[in-house]
Amino acid sequence: MLLQLKNLFKWVTVGGNRVFLLKDINLSVKEGEFISVMGPSGSGKSTLLNVIGMLDHFDEGEYDFLHESVHKMKDKQKASLYKQYIGFVFQQYHLIDELTVYENIETPLIYQDLKTSERKAMVADILDRFNIVGKKDLFPTQLSGGQQQLVGIARALIAKPKLLLADEPTGNLNSKQGEEIMNLFTELNKEGVTIIQVTHSEKNAAYGSRIINLLDARIENEQTAS
């Protein structure tokens, strides 16, 4: 079991009333799964992803990650946990404009206090694997959307995470680029990376082994891919 959410609630208080962002979420994720989270806007998909990624707090319930209780952890412990095990991919890529492709990919390693030589080897590997060696000295603004997302994924994977969280990774891409990214995800999943993606597209969701439908902050239903 990679992670498990039990009776998880998250809310904000507006004018004295609780507005639930997540309501009684129960979810278990095994290593090697590829999960797609779907649902209409505002149903809590991104919030769920952020909570799983430990970027956001929740108000009630339990969250175990690799058999450790996240809900009992301090921010610092959480940070060191997700630094090690979790990678993020965003719809807007979120690359740092002032850094080159190479430096963007290198950054997570810097925060893990790896030596320059190790970092060099790891970045070189991943550039090679993603076929973007020739782009390593370019800045994000010099790349197409698909290429930027590729860099984003490379950056998310550089530290060899167990879990990849992707928030609409193809949302800003055309269908051909999107397909390439999804194929890449499938490939990564086969290599053992657990993936949870948020998506609007039925087509992309179908790449996953399991689809979770959210509605009004709660899990409406779950379906396993055929």
Binding site: G53, L55, K76, A79, Y82, K83, F88, H94, L95, I96, D97, E98, T107, P108, Y111, Q112, R155, A159
Partner: peptide, 16 residues
């Protein structure tokens, strides 16, 4: 601010 957010996601601590 965007840069700060990205760096934090990538594991940068506040002190860094």
């Amino acid at each position: 601010s965007k840069e700060v957010g990205i760096r934090k996601v990538m594991g940068s601590g506040k002190q860094q």
